[in-house]
Nucleic acid binder design. Sequence first.
DNA 1: GCCAACGTTGGC
DNA 2: GCCAACGTTGGC
Length: 155
Amino acid sequence: MTGYWLMKSEPAEASIDDLAAAPAQTLAWTGVRNYQARNFMRDDMRAGDGVLFYHSSCAEPGIAGLARVVGGLAPDATQFDPASPYFDARSSPAAPRWLQIDVQLQRKTRLLTLAEMRHAPELATMQVLQRGNRLSITPVTPAEWQAVLARLGQA
DNA sequence: GCCAACGTTGGC
DNA sequence: GCCAACGTTGGC
């Protein structure tokens, strides 16, 4: 049973092009500091799961590419680094609070903008579009995944 | 830069 | 356990 996810990243920090340029086109997804999103990584995300790579907090927010989870669940290294903006003084290697997981590029797509997503009736149920949603990782249903691929012309 | 919405913190 | 204050997210 393959799962599907939408993962938000600020392109100024990690864009789809950064993912494409990374070794093995794989990045450790660090910086998640929300328990619900962390629990998705810990409990529900599996190697092989599909990922919609979403650019947030930028001029043109939207889905910028497709990726997949490739495993590598581990304590998020940035929580122990005092120089990192993601440093968490209340975490410790003995009892890490935050996790990272490895994500590999599948392919870059045209930008499916947030505006277009909001106008697409078949995407209206997507959690990322719900009012007040702030989660950086949200589950995507198989129907929503297929609808996104269809809209990208890559079904 | 603004602001709505949400999660977390901490006093009680 | 409640809830007000605060900080963060993220679109606009």
